[in-house]
Every structure is written in structure tokens, then in C-alpha cells.
Write a protein that binds this DNA or RNA. Structure first.
Length: 273
DNA sequence: CGGTAGACCTGACCGC
DNA sequence: TGCGGTCAGGTCTACC
């Protein structure tokens, strides 16, 4: 499901209802999803108050009062939503259930099981997955010059560069196509052929599309819902993604779909150079 | 190190 | 109704 805007939407939804609350219990209905879920997690977080809920790239971090953290990644099909203890009927892919006072439940559901749930103890600083996270697109330290320096030496195409989480963290298949369209840049272009001026435009495009998508509550395709069950609506604002054969919103040329690194890319061959 | 294919998993959809 | 093929919002690992 999720790229940065969807994860941000989930993190905000969780904050509204469980920030400052104490975890009563965590139930693991599976021993592993993409990786094993630590068996000790329930014992470690039981009775812990959630003092912060952060998003780092596409990860959600529940910060606990004792300094421990719960790391969550939604993979391709992961969802988190609220239920009430009295009426809850466990769904097929409900793998983890967090219980809070007054019968409030937070369900982690993930059909494809590409998601991750891990526990990071208080004194642990490094984490393999978090160490692979690059700069946040909204970071003040990410200037056009910094982006240019990261891109200019890369021989691979812009699609792969923007999908690389170590370069910029948070974009995925939808928002890479959308950002490149807004920047008028061909997804097939080599990083070595991008100018500083274009990086400035690209960075603005990335920030604009992500900001608009967050405002819309993310994009709901097949199985994404917000924590409260509402649908995000940014999918109705896609300019190229999933619009093969449809007219470009700027020039009416038919949108093309190509495959890059085994994933679909959508672009306008007239607008994007 | 950079680049790329393959792997992991379930479900929805399409054509026969 | 079933069956096979394709595709899906991610990213880690192995290999060149």
C-alpha cells in the first residue's frame, strides 16, 4: 500500500487515538511476516506509554516511555486500523493486535506479509533497516545542490534513482512517476545527464506532489484505508500513474507505460524530456 | 562501491 | 466454475 504520504496518513491517524495511551497488550497471531516478529515484543511493550509516534521514510516508530521503540513498515499491502474489542472479528490477515484501555484495538493487517514489525530496545542505536534510510524529501539539508551531487554520478535511470531509498527516502512507484511528470523529466534519463537547474525543479516537484498527497489522505488503490476506515483520495489527482493510453493533462498526448526494474512507469513522451 | 535480476507472498482480474 | 497468466503501493539478497 504505502509510500510516504500513506504512511504519514497512518501515523497521524494513530497519533490522534493512541498517542499518550498505555499499551495493555500485544497479541501476535503469526510468528513472522517478512521477518520474525520478536517473541519478546509483547512483554517488552506491555504497560508502556506511547510518548511519540514518528514517521521515518516509510517506517512508523512508536516511541515508548522507557526508551524502547516499536518499528512498523507496511510493505505493499499492510494496513493499520482501529477496532473495538466488543465487536472485533479477526480478519484473515490480521497478524498483530495492539490493545489499549476502554477496549480500543489497533490492528496490523498485511495480506502479502512484506511488512515489518520489530522491537528496538532503549539503548540500541543502530538498526539495519533504519540505517538504509536516506534523506527525508522535506529535510532542509536536502538542497538542489545536494540532490544534484547524489544524482550526477549515477549512470542508472531517474526512475531507479528516485526509487532508491538511500538517495531520497519515501518515494515509491506512484510518486516517482508523478514527480518526474511534474518536473518534465523522462524516467529513462540517466542521472549523469541531469543538470543542477533540473534538480531544483525536481525537488520542488517531489515536495509538491507529496504535500498534496498528504493533504488528500494519501492514495487509495486496492486495499489502502486510513486508520479510521476512510479512503484517501489522491488517486483521483494522478496525472500519469495508472493512466496508460489516457490523455496527458497538459498536452493530451497518450500516456505511455513502460517497465523499469520490473515495475511499471508512466510518463508523457511529449512533456517529459 | 554501483547496477540489476530474483526472491519473498496473497489476491484480484482477465481470457479461455 | 476453474485454471493459468499477469499485475499490484516494497525492498532485501545475491550476483556481476
Amino acid at each position: 500500500m504505502p509510500e510516504l504520504p500513506e504512511v504519514e496518513t497512518v501515523a497521524r491517524g494513530l497519533s490522534k487515538k493512541i498517542l499518550g495511551k498505555t499499551i495493555r497488550e500485544v497479541t501476535l497471531h503469526r510468528a513472522d511476516i517478512r521477518f520474525p516478529i520478536p517473541k519478546i515484543l509483547p512483554a517488552k511493550v506491555r504497560g508502556q506509554k506511547i510518548i511519540a509516534i514518528d514517521r521515518l521514510s516509510k517506517y512508523i516508530l512508536l516511541r515508548l516511555a522507557d526508551g524502547g521503540r516499536v518499528l512498523i513498515h507496511l510493505g505493499m499491502s499492510g494496513r493499520m486500523f482501529f477496532e473495538t474489542e466488543k465487536t472485533y472479528a479477526r480478519g484473515k490477515h490480521d497478524h498483530v493486535v495492539f490493545s489499549f484501555p476502554k477496549g480500543l484495538l489497533v490492528i496490523f493487517n498485511d495480506a502479502r506479509r512484506f511488512g515489518v514489525i520489530d522491537y528496538i530496545a532503549a539503548k540500541t542505536k543502530a538498526h539495519k533497516l533504519l540505517d538504509a534510510v536516506g534523506m527525508d524529501p522535506f529535510s532542509k539539508d536536502l538542497t538542489p545542490q545536494v540532490l544534484f551531487d547524489k544524482i550526477r554520478t549515477r549512470k542508472t535511470d531517474m526512475k531507479a534513482i528516485l526509487m532508491n531509498q538511500k538517495i531520497i527516502a519515501g518515494l515509491g512507484n506512484i510518486y516517482v512517476s508523478e514527480a518526474l511528470f511534474r518536473a518534465k523529466m523522462r524516467p529513462t534519463r540517466s542521472g549523469t545527464k541531469v543538470t543542477l537547474k533540473e534538480c531544483k525543479k525536481l525537488l520542488s516537484a517531489i515536495r509538491a506532489v507529496l504535500t498534496e498527497a498528504i493533504k488528500a489522505g494519501g492514495s487509495s488503490l486496492r486495499d489502502y484505508v486510513q486508520t479510521d476506515g476512510e479512503l484517501g483520495y489522491f488517486q483521483s489527482k494522478f496525472r500519469v500513474y495508472d493512466r496508460e493510453g489516457k490523455p496527458c493533462p497538459a498536452c493530451k498526448t497518450k500516456i505511455e507505460r513502460i517497465t523499469q526494474s520490473g515495475r511499471s512507469t508512466y510518463f508523457c513522451s511529449t512533456c517529459q524530456k
